[in-house]
Design a protein around this nucleic acid. Structure first.
Lengths: 336, 336
DNA sequence: TTGTAAGCGTTATCAT
DNA sequence: ATGATAACGCTTACAA
C-alpha cells in the first residue's frame, strides 16, 4: 500500500491538517514543522492520492482533449502545443480519440460529467449534436471547441477561418492563370463546409469569374475518397486545371490519383492542399498549402478553458484565426 | 451541482447502498426496487462521481498509455488498437506523450503512483531508467513495456524483434544483388540498437559477407538526422548501394536527401525503411519496409496489463513479435 | 432484500 | 500555529 497523509502525520507527530497545509504550501504552518514534514514526505516518497484530493477539493487539474481524428498530423500538432500550455499551468492532459464517432464522444463526455477532469477541449469533428449542447448547459462543464461549429453558437470556441483560407487560395490560383478551379471539401453537411464554399464563391466573383457548381465536390475526409474523387472528375464533363483540397488526407489521396493517372503537378493540375506538416511535406512536388495556425489555436483554447475553469470568463468568447497560404511548387504555373 | 447517489436514494426512498447495488448490477436488490432506482437515475441523468468511486473501490478503470513519440504513425496505430481493446474491456485510456523526456515520464508516472490509473503501458523510448525501475518494484504499479528494453528484464513486455527484421532486410537486399548495405539506426546507446546491428551482422556473415563497421550509422531518430546522414555518407570513403533505415522519421529524411541529391531509388540506392503506415506510404517510389505488428503489439500488451491488474499473472511475461518485410519498388534491383 | 455505518485519502472549517 | 472533525460521493461489510 502507498503511504498516506495520515502516516506522515503520525510520523511527524502532528495533525493531518497540518501535513496537508505544509505539503500544499498553505499559510499557517511553522517553518520548522513544515520542513520536518516535507522531509518525511520526501523520504518516504509520498504521493498524494489524486482521487481523494480531487474529491475533497472538487478539482483534478486534469483536462480532457477530445480529438475527432488522430490521423491528422495537424491535430497532433495542436495537441503537442496544448501539452506545453498545460504543463506550464500545472495541468495534465487526458487525450481521447473519438474517430468521429458520436458514441465515443458521448462516452468521453462523462469524464467531464463525472468530475474526472476540470474541463474539456474538443478538436474538430462534426456539427455539435444534442448531447454536447446539453452538457454545455451545466456551468460545471467547462467546454472549449476548436475548429468545430454548432448551429447555435453557445460555445466558447477557437476557429480557423476556412472561408478566408479558401479565398486566398482561389486568388492565388487565378493569379497563376488557372481558371477552372475545383474545390474538394468534406462531405459532412455542416457550417464549416459551407464556409469553405462561401470563400470559394466569393473569391471567384470578386475576381470576375462565374461559379460552376459542378466544380464543388463534397467527399469523405479520407485518403481513399480523395483518390476516388479525381477518378470521377476526369471522367466528367468539365475538367478543372487546379484543385483546392481542404483536408490533409484527401489531399494525399488526390495527389496520389493525379500521379497514378500519369498526370503532372502543376503542369496538368495545380494543387493547393491543407495543413503544413510532416505528411504533406513528404509529397512530391512540394505542395502549396493552407497552413493552420496550430500554436495559436492551442494557446487560445487553453487560455479560454483556464478562464472558464477559474470563472474568469465574463462573456462567451469566440476567436477566429486565419490560415496562411504557403506557396510552393504545386501551384506555380509553368507559363508564368 | 451534479446529482449524487444520496439524492437518488432520497428520491427512491431507499438506502444509498441499495442504489449503489442497483446501479452496479450487484446481487441483492429486488427487481422492482432496482427498476425504480434505474428509472430515477436515468431521469436525472445521474453520473457516478468516478473520483469517489475510485477512492472507495481502489479502482479507476483507467489506464495510462505513455508514448515516447507522438510523431510516429506506427505508435499512433498501436494507440488506436489499444483504444479498441480498452473499450471492449470497460477501460478508458489516458494518453500521455513524453517526447522522450525523462522528466515528463517521471511526471506521468505519478498517475500510477497517485492511483489515478490502474496500470500503464509504456510505448517506445530509451532504455529504462531508475525511476521506472523503482516504480516497478511496487506490486501496485502495473506496468507493461512495449518496444522498450531494460538492463535487467524485470518488466512484463511486448517486443518487436528488430534483429530478425534487419536480418530479413539484409537477406532480401543481398538477394537483389546489393552488396554494400548501410544500416542507419538510432543513436541512443540501448539494447534495441544493439539488436539491430546484431541482426545486420549475422545476416551478412550467414551469407558469406564481410562486415564493415563504417557502414553502420547511429543517428538521432528524426527526419533531419536522416537527411544529414546521407550527405555525410556520400562524402565518405565507402559509398553504399543500399540503405536499411530503422525508424520512420529517419527513413523520410534519408529518402528526401537521396532525391534532393539527384539520385534515384532504387537505381542508385536501394532503400528499406521502417513502418508500414500513412507516412511511409506517401513516399515515391513505393517503399520496401519492415512492418511492425502493431495490432499484435497492442493486443498482447493490453492483455498482459489486464492480467497484472487482476493479479492473474503468475510469472513475468515477455512476448517477442517479428516484423514483416513488405517488398516494394524501392529495393528491387533493375538488374533482376 | 434492505439498511446502517465504516472507510477510502484528502481538504476545509472551526476551535483552541 | 496547530488540532479536531466534518465533508467530498461512493463501496462494502455487517446487521437487521
Amino acid at each position: 500500500m502507498q503511504i498516506t497523509l495520515k502516516d506522515i502525520a503520525r510520523m511527524a507527530d502532528v495533525a493531518e491538517s497540518t501535513v496537508s497545509r505544509a505539503l500544499n504550501n498553505k499559510p499557517g504552518v511553522g517553518e520548522d514543522t513544515k520542513l520536518k514534514i516535507i522531509k518525511i514526505a520526501k523520504k518516504h516518497n509520498y504521493r498524494p492520492n489524486q482521487l481523494a484530493r480531487g474529491l475533497a477539493a472538487n478539482k483534478t487539474n486534469m483536462i480532457a482533449v477530445i480529438l475527432s481524428e488522430m490521423d491528422s498530423p495537424g491535430n497532433i500538432e495542436i495537441v503537442k502545443s496544448l501539452e506545453k500550455a498545460a504543463e506550464k499551468n500545472g495541468y495534465q492532459i487526458i487525450l481521447c480519440n473519438t474517430n468521429n464517432q458520436t458514441e465515443k464522444e458521448k462516452s468521453y463526455l462523462t469524464l467531464l460529467e463525472s468530475n474526472q477532469v476540470d474541463g474539456a477541449i474538443f478538436i474538430g469533428g462534426k456539427l455539435v449534436e444534442g448531447h454536447l449542447l446539453r452538457a454545455s448547459f451545466s456551468p460545471d462543464n467547462n467546454i472549449v471547441l476548436v475548429n468545430r461549429l454548432a448551429e447555435e453558437n453557445f460555445f466558447t470556441s477557437v476557429l480557423t477561418d476556412y472561408s478566408q483560407g479558401v479565398y486566398k487560395a482561389v486568388g492565388h490560383l487565378l493569379d497563376q492563370g488557372f481558371e477552372n478551379i475545383a474545390l474538394v471539401g468534406g462531405e459532412d453537411y455542416n457550417l464549416i463546409e459551407e464556409e469553405k464554399s462561401a470563400g470559394y464563391k466569393a473569391a471567384l466573383i470578386d475576381h470576375g469569374y462565374q461559379i460552376n457548381e459542378d466544380l464543388i465536390f463534397s467527399i469523405k475526409a479520407d485518403r481513399k475518397s480523395g483518390y476516388n474523387v479525381f477518378l470521377e472528375i476526369i471522367e466528367g464533363d468539365i475538367i478543372p486545371d487546379a484543385f483546392i483540397s481542404t483536408s490533409e488526407l484527401t489531399t494525399i489521396g488526390l495527389v496520389e490519383a493525379i500521379k497514378m493517372g500519369g498526370y503532372f503537378i502543376p503542369d496538368d493540375f495545380a494543387v493547393v492542399g491543407y495543413g503544413d506538416n510532416i505528411l504533406t511535406s513528404v509529397i512530391d512536388p512540394p505542395l502549396t498549402v493552407l497552413s493552420e495556425p496550430v500554436d495559436a489555436l492551442a494557446d487560445y483554447s487553453f487560455d479560454f478553458l483556464l478562464k472558464l475553469i477559474n470563472k474568469k470568463m465574463k462573456d462567451q468568447q469566440i476567436k477566429v484565426l486565419t490560415p496562411e497560404l504557403i506557396i510552393r511548387e504545386s501551384s506555380i504555373s509553368k507559363y508564368n
